[in-house]
Nucleic acid binder design. Structure first.
Lengths: 199, 199, 199, 199
DNA sequence: TATGAATGAGTGTTCATTCAT
DNA sequence: AATGAATGAACACTCATTCAT
């Protein structure tokens, strides 16, 4: 029926993976189509059989990243158990997912840059972060009674910020122990919103 | 014979300011020297009388940013009063400084990208964040007895992360009320490390 | 998958020949890559598929010239017969070779200029002339007994000079009958060194 | 009457001398107006008070060179004594003049290049060489009876060639002892045309 | 007269994209 | 489908020339 559909899509993935590796290494701006083709071990022209343009590679990388995000968030929303524990799982999942695919993480630097309003590529990074915030805000709302009064959307923003900000520091300085940061993040963020059971 | 009529360094600043505005708008990668010249209302060649290269403009922008950073951090270190309150002031100062110069803030997106290891421009962004962490870690240390045990460097990273991560979200979506985030950040971060006065 | 259709080195030669024609006409300094591309009837970018830079075109032209030189000199060294007759053949060969490829001859003007010490391009023109002199000095040495005493390296320099100087004048004024100058050169140079059979 | 005429012309000479020094060092193509101004120790704009354009500097340098040539040739024409001896004096004068002002000599490389037909600057180098040849041909004609039959214009070309060709080799390789070449040149050129007094 | 800041036309080079094979 | 040679638009940077002071 679709005799080469699998091949085609596998090939596409192969090229995208190569592109992500190169983007991670040199950054999008410094990456040439030639570099991607060489990394994917195919001819330069072949890249265009699977992607419309150089920018399309970054868009596809964004999509891959956004999909990971959606998955992690969906799990958090569908999870059961105490909301603050699900928040903890969410934070750990995010960091693990990034630590698992450090190359995908490194392209965040380019995705952030390209998210700019006047950019030609309107990758919907704002949307990704908006979803993050919404999901976490929802968890906080569910946790009503466990968290202090007044905790709300802004605190969700801070929690997302803490995660992304740690990630950012790791990207700037890979010596930072990104996985070890999960607990401190939770320490700060979860304790930072938890209701104090004052005597 | 006639001494210079123009103040070299004022002119330089004027061009740099124009460059920062354009970088903020279109991103460094998409900014042409011509754009900067037009924004500064001078000829293209004149840019080169004050900057060695296009990259030098970004480096200068980094320097401007780094100087702001150093000032804010210095104030935090020299401040008096309870450490956690000084942490609060620091957080507010950082956010205010960035909200005051949103264009300078937006080039952070480019500075982060250029911080990449293989980049040609050795902008010392890692150094900037390292100083941030050190300063905050110092405040936390001074706050010993007020903060929970085990609170340390990693928590400093989380606090820096929360600030930068909120900033990041604001950059992605300028509708976020960046200055209003100071209190939630402190809410989370300060409460997140403060000793619980358990009965 | 399909092997190259074009013969790389043939293409290279084609471009080089075009470049030499333009150099001959306008001089290297006044030649734009665009001129070369147009003369070769290809796109400007294609020049760079075969040559690293504009300078590389001149270097390649030098190589072509140097190869011709080496061939002519080798023939002179390998020749048989009385040395002074071989000198005559050498002189005639040099002039004929240049008259045959007047465009290659005209780039001599540029090669001489580029031979300057501080030049970026280390075209070994001095080496070429040094070989000329050595070869001719060798012929003169072999001719010992036929030439006057005291005839040596300096006279070789003068003979090379006479050839190149005639060439120079022809380049300045193409109406000079370069090939007809072979005999006068020999007249002067050979008679100028030949032993006088004094009574 | 002409209150600053001397000053003006002296200034012009100062600049021209500076230009010649720079041309000699880096070649005309690589010489910037800035280089000349710095060498002359004046402002860049001031160069244009005395010369119309960069090219005009090379033209002026040519004029200076051509004037030296004319002087030397005039002396040869006006001289007395046996023609072949005057030819000897001429050769020596030319070489001495060049050895005296090696910088003026070095710009020959640029003058030759710029003499090209399609060049924008039609420096009359062909004219200079033509005069050389005419003068020497005249000497040879006067020497009728002392030189072999058939010696004529072409031999004049060869003699001019020998001089210029030695000069060329010296310019390519300054280690060649230019002044020591006068005698070999005469050896070859004068003996090369002199009538053999056969027994 | 002297200056050097300002200019912008001009050019070498790169590289995304196309297309003949 | 796959290739890589060919292309030319785009751009950083240079520098001769101008001109306000």
């Amino acid at each position: 029926m679709t005799p080469k559909r699998v091949d085609r899509s596998a090939r596409r993935e192969q090229i995208l993976a190569a592109a992500v590796r190169v983007f991670a290494r040199k950054g999008f701006a410094a990456t040439r189509i030639d570099d991607v083709a060489r990394e994917a071990d195919i001819g330069k022209g072949s890249v265009y059989l699977y992607f419309d343009s150089r920018d399309a590679l970054l868009s596809a990388a964004f999509e891959a990243f956004a999909e990971r995000s959606r998955n992690v968030l969906q799990q958090a929303r569908e999870g059961t158990g105490p909301p603050l524990e699900r928040l903890g799982s969410l934070v750990r999942s995010v960091l693990e997912a990034l630590a698992d695919e450090p190359e995908l993480a490194r392209i965040l630097l380019d995705l952030w840059s390209s998210g700019r309003e006047e950019s030609q590529l309107p990758l919907d990074m704002p949307g990704v972060y908006s979803e993050y915030r919404t999901t976490i805000a929802e968890l906080l709302r569910e946790a009503e009674g466990t968290v202090r009064e007044g905790v709300g959307e802004h605190h969700a923003t801070v929690i997302v910020g803490a995660i992304e900000g740690c990630l950012l520091q790791w990207l700037m300085d890979p010596r930072l122990p990104i996985t070890e940061l999960a607990e401190p993040i939770l320490d700060v963020c979860v304790e930072g919103v938890r209701l104090r059971e004052e005597a």
